[in-house]
Nucleic acid binder design. Structure first.
Lengths: 337, 337
DNA sequence: ACTTGGCACTCGGGAACACAGAGTGCTAGA
DNA sequence: TCTAGCACTCTGTGTTCCCGAGTGCCAAGT
């Protein structure tokens, strides 16, 4: 059905269209790529490709444009991820190495990725669920208020102000802190609910109301942050691009955490670090855009996802290379800290 | 020079143009607003207004459009801030009251403001400089690493991992923590450098290298966050608007903290809570856009600024009302926590 | 059987043009 | 000082026309 040359034609069409943003015709194709056949032959191949749904023409007597299906075939079989240049790799490394805390790592990552790909970059904050507790701190603020601070091994810090049901002395707070840390230090966050379940019973009865309140806030903190924050950067890169869907819709999606989460997709449990490419109508919400994403995190412990979003007409090999490289470096940074 | 009726004409032109986005002509003006004079008279007034530079016409034989100078006069003398409806006020209150921590307050505020004004909202994080220290925490992570956590009275938490020059026992860390808290608790952040200056000398000589390292990180934390983070929301609202400057430039400015900071402007020290309106070319960088901003914070302690950015052609009375109201409510929330 | 050159056909986009309508400035009269 | 009338000047729109890029198909060549 699709012999070698037809695939070469498809590849050429995708590459030309991506770089020129104009429907590509048979004549130009035969010239620019040395296909060693005449425009007429190319036309026949193009007709076949159109028949199969890989390309289409905007109007009669215009050049051809790849369809989503065409891009899909291109990504799957006709292209290979383009690695970054040495200079780019070094730039990434030094830029990310300057980060001072987790927030900073994420901010730098998202900006870097946006600049590198000239698309919109999207980064999900590392999930807490797989993190472990490094320290729990209780800071008395006033007689009946305590600040609960939770520090994880990824450097994340969560804090909540807890209103106590009754006055609790500082020494009792200190004791509770010691107990909590002895109990939780080094444990995975997902194990926390089980571990603290019988805690009130192991403490003096008079403390129970306060302890129960504090624990409920602690658990709430874990749950609330389960669906994690997502940030984006590079919206300015959308200004030039033309989507089949309106620019407004794209910007709205970017500010809607839930939609963005769906777009980034789930990390497939078997190959978490594989690149996911969603093209045009393959996307759950935003048709007309493509997404290149991957999981990141240290080693086998995948923490979250990052990727870029752009028009369907994007340079997939380069974008995929950038996403993969950035994911690797940020994983490295996180593992080191 | 400008009698009462001419001012009325200018007001009518601004109002009409803002609502229709089309140059407004003399005939329509005389009809829609009951000026009780004929179109011809209006034309004479318009000629005068144009002479003075308050309005202009895009081409000969098109209606008139306000200039920046015209909007300025409108804002200063011809309009009054439009208060929000009761329903809106209640909605703001309940929405902001649901915030769980400082991050959440800021996020909710910026979204709220964007939705309310249908413009891009910009909120600066409360500055640390005027905050006071509520607690300093040192958490031993390993033999030579300590996490420094700084908690302020605004609920802000800053953390840094400190690499120590030598092994320090936990008990000595605990002692240092006690000393630090005794020294700093309740003090303004700006006073911290002075307060810790002689600290190393008051401690055993063997601890000095470690103490010096920790203190330098602490001071660094204060300095680094001095220029504060700014967030925005509602970029989707830019999609419809037309700026004289390109959409791309606006989006770029929004992602550039420094530029955004300049746009929000300084809180004037004498009347910190006054509304600042910058129209078109009055803006330092982004000509063609207007900014309505104000300081916020509890009472006389102005913490930071917030505002909205939109096209010069904006509904100033409504926008100013929304900005003012949101600033008040968020100040209230912050004061309570 | 595949490739190639030739040829008629289609359609989008740009240039040239005319026209209606909105809005203006000006002048004369109330 | 305001108003009515009038001639003038634009922009935007609709029409027409034509060029050129690109196609599909067919017949001839390898």
């Amino acid at each position: 059905m699709l012999d070698e040359r037809k695939l070469a034609v498809l590849r050429a069409i995708v590459e030309d269209y991506v770089s020129t943003n104009e429907p590509v015709g048979s004549k130009a194709l035969a010239e620019r790529h040395n296909l060693k056949v005449s425009p007429a032959t190319v036309r026949n191949d193009m007709a076949a490709l159109e028949e199969e749904g890989y390309i289409t023409q905007p109007h009669t007597s215009a050049g051809r444009v790849p369809t989503d299906k065409g891009y899909r075939l291109f990504v799957d079989r006709l292209s290979q991820v383009k690695p970054l240049s040495g200079a780019e790799r070094r730039a990434i490394e030094t830029f990310l190495a300057g980060a001072v805390d987790l927030d900073d790592v994420v901010t730098r990552t998202v900006r870097l990725l946006a600049q590198l790909t000239r698309q919109v970059a999207v980064v999900q904050y590392p999930t807490l669920t797989r993190s472990t507790v490094r320290h729990v701190e209780l800071v008395p603020l006033s007689e009946r208020r305590v600040m609960l601070v939770l520090i994880t091994n990824t450097g994340r810090v969560e804090q909540r102000v807890v209103e106590l049901p009754e006055v609790v002395e500082d020494t009792r707070i200190a004791h509770l802190r010691a107990v909590l840390n002895a109990c939780l230090d080094g444990c995975g966050l997902s194990a926390v609910p089980d571990l603290v379940a019988d805690l009130p019973e192991r403490l003096p009865a008079e403390d129970r109301p306060a302890v129960a309140t504090i624990l409920s806030v602690l658990l709430e903190t874990l749950v609330e942050r389960h669906d994690e924050k997502i940030v984006f950067a590079g919206a300015a890169n959308l200004a030039g691009a033309d989507f089949t869907v309106g620019l407004r819709d794209v910007l709205e999606a970017l500010e809607e955490q839930v939609v963005l989460m769906r777009l980034l997709g789930e990390t497939s449990s078997d190959t978490p670090s594989a690149l996911t490419v969603r093209i045009g109508s393959e996307n759950p919400y935003l048709h007309g855009t493509s997404i290149v994403a991957t999981g990141y995190g240290s080693g086998d412990n995948q923490l979250a996802r990052l990727g870029v979003l752009g028009p369907t007409r994007m340079d997939y090999p380069v974008t995929m290379g950038a996403v993969r490289a950035v994911a690797r470096y940020v994983s490295q940074i996180l593992a080191a800290s």
